[in-house]
Write a protein that binds this DNA or RNA. Structure first.
Length: 579
RNA sequence: UGGGACGUCGCCAAGUGGUAAGGCACCUGCCUUUGGAGCAGGUAUUCCCAGGUUCGAAUCCUGGCGUCCCAGCCA
């Protein structure tokens, strides 16, 4: 929810009193746009674009750009944001990616309406601009090989040398360029280059390539072209053709801005978009390079682009993240020009925050420990009322079966309780949430291994529902599942894919893969209502974490992905105690 | 030692000459049938460093230091 143009925040009518009106914070791009608006620079228009190359799945870094570009369009009256595929390199691109990208942008909650564009739609016009450049003597066909171009380019501290073809006649350039398009030359034999300045301190201005010959089937234009424009040339003209006012990109393109402006300055154009650069997102413990993510997929290090450990939008969706969480995260991190590394904890906090408001609570025991309640009648079954979501009264309640034998989590019992532990231990009383108080009477162990296999307890019949008339304090509360009613489930626990905070720095990412990034647990016990849970359903396992039903689930055999754990104060205390 | 950027609390980040927002994390209490959530409070005498201008500087000037990006016929 955004503030309206008068600056008055919209009142929420939501039943929960949570404040969902967020004052979107200021950033340098808004300052620029405000200034432009004040000066009526683009006739009061604000038009941005999100320009992905369809060569991989979108990741959380793209989400930052999507939220920025579409968010700006939403925030300014009449603002628009286009979705444009920057598909100028057919060797790396694929329709699988153009489809997934659209799905992901939509899922994130953004709409490009009828403004879906492809740079490849502009190939004919782009060719025309190139011809125009040649006619003005500002571009030439160069026959240098890749190695020779590199040698001629000079270095960071030394100027380059002119190509021997630099002064080719306009007529010859026109002829050669037409023949390049016609397919008369082999790949790599010629390029079209802009004639700028081989001694420029900005290497991008040293006669950059504009077109290269590449016989490769394009996912949209098929085999219509064998020459393809370079990014610098295609991007600025695409922006111009769409009437983009603010062309927002990442920091590494800062050096390209003079070139962006140069191209647009050479031809007569109706508008000249302004390129603005911001710092891309870096997230601790994750890798954002599309090349490396593709490698993870190809080597089957992960199960696919949508593996819940991947930083992709598809992965996060499968993991159980809500689009609202990702948007909140992108708002929280801000937009600036300083290179930075955002703590994964912030993302997780945004994920919990949203799920806390919406996820239904259920009883689920991930690592079961059996309890027999000796004074509870055999064969008796009661139904207790479970509150579905304490944060949302409208979510109501449900009936949960209770019986003589129940499972609790192994973590909720300690034979020798450490200091400060107030869960179950021999002789101690705790509450089984929504049900009864129980007291541990006996610990049964495997004679050979010494492993605790069962607990014998007694219950207080007067504590039904979880309170007693004497109002005695029972601090510990455990979740539980009735043994005879339990549904067996598979649970997948995820941890960081990488074991170091900045995987991008590693010389070999394979060496820093976290071997415990996925832990699969079978024979988990969940309450009967989850028997045929629909894939994509997000729930909270009481006291444990948020989980999402995975698409691998079968009827009667649900599979849950742990989206994120609950904040665990006790784990922190215990960790501190152990040093 | 070419060019382009950036340096404000542990991590992000506002601030644009008038006396350091906010979020995450952290620390106190309170509350609690989730050791969850919620509520209340606390945490930068100081903005990379050093000089200077000014009544007044994170903001302006000068000089340092540090970090990032650029030598694809990738985007």
């Amino acid at each position: 929810m955004t503030a309206d143009t008068t600056g008055v925040q919209t009142e929420t009518t939501s039943a929960s009193e949570t404040n969902t009106t967020t004052q979107t914070s200021s950033n340098f791009i808004k300052t620029i746009i405000n200034e432009d608006l004040k000066n009526n620079k683009n006739g009061g228009r604000v038009q941005t674009r999100f320009p992905p190359e369809p060569n991989g799945y979108l990741h959380i870094g793209h989400a930052k750009s999507i939220c920025l570009n579409f968010g700006l369009a939403k925030e300014y009256p009449g603002g628009k944001c286009n979705l444009r595929f920057d598909d100028t390199n057919p060797t790396k691109e694929d329709v699988e990616y153009v489809d997934s990208i659209q799905e992901d942008v939509r899922w994130l909650g953004f709409d490009w309406e009828n403004r879906l564009y492809f740079a490849s739609d502009y190939f004919e016009k782009l060719y025309g601009f190139a011809v125009e450049l040649i006619k003005q003597g500002k571009a030439y066909v160069c026959s240098l090989t890749g190695d020779q171009v590199r040698e001629h380019r000079g270095t960071l501290t030394q100027p380059g040398k002119d190509s021997p073809d630099r002064d080719r006649s306009i007529a010859d350039n026109l002829d050669l360029f037409a023949r390049m398009r016609a397919g008369e030359f082999a790949d790599g034999t010629y390029t079209l280059r802009a004639k700028i300045d081989m001694s420029s301190p900005n290497i991008n201005m040293r006669d950059p390539a504009v077109y290269r010959i590449r016989r490769f089937h394009h996912h949209r234009t098929g085999d219509a072209w064998c020459i393809y424009p370079m990014y610098d040339f295609a991007h600025c003209f695409s922006d111009m053709l769409e009437g983009i006012t603010h062309s927002i990109c990442t920091l590494e393109f800062e050096d390209h801005r003079p070139l962006y402006d140069w191209f647009l300055d050479q031809v007569k154009v109706p508008c000249h978009p302004q390129q603005i650069e911001f710092a891309r997102l870096n997230l601790s413990y994750t890798m954002m390079s599309k090349r490396k993510l593709l490698e993870l997929v190809k080597t089957q290090t992960v199960a696919g682009w949508d593996d819940p450990r991947m930083p992709t939008i598809a992965g996060m969706r499968r993991r159980g993240y809500m689009p609202e969480s990702i948007r909140a995260f992108c708002e929280a991190i801000g937009v600036a020009k300083a290179n930075s590394m955002v703590d994964m904890g912030l993302l997780e906090s945004c994920v919990r925050d949203e799920l806390n408001k919406h996820a239904q609570r259920i009883m689920a025991v991930v690592k079961p420990l059996k309890i027999v309640i000796e004074n509870y009648p055999e064969g008796k079954v009661e139904e207790v009322d479970g509150i579905n979501n304490p944060e949302d009264p409208t979510a109501g309640s449900r009936k949960i079966p209770f019986s003589r034998e129940v499972y609790i989590d192994q973590d909720d019992f300690r034979e020798v309780p450490p200091k400060g532990y107030y869960r179950l231990s021999p002789g101690k009383e705790i509450r089984l949430k929504f049900a009864y108080y129980i007291t541990c009477q006996k610990v049964i162990k495997d004679e050979k291994t010494g492993e605790i296999i069962e607990l014998r307890c007694t219950y207080d019949p007067a504590s039904r529902g979880g309170t007693t008339a004497d109002m005695r304090k029972v601090k510990g509360t455990s979740h539980w599942v009735s043994a005879q009613h339990a549904v067996e489930a598979e649970v997948r626990l995820y941890d960081h894919l990488f074991s170091t905070p900045n995987p991008a720095e590693a010389e070999d990412w394979k060496s820093i893969l976290n071997p415990k990034s996925l832990e699969v647990i079978h024979n988990c016990k969940v309450e009967p209502g989850m028997r045929n849970a629909v894939a994509g359903t997000r729930v909270q396992f009481e006291r444990t974490g948020y989980f999402c039903v995975d698409s691998d689930s079968k009827p009667g055999k649900p599979v849950f992905n742990r989206t994120v754990g609950l904040r665990d104060t006790w784990a922190k205390i215990e960790k501190f105690q152990k040093g």
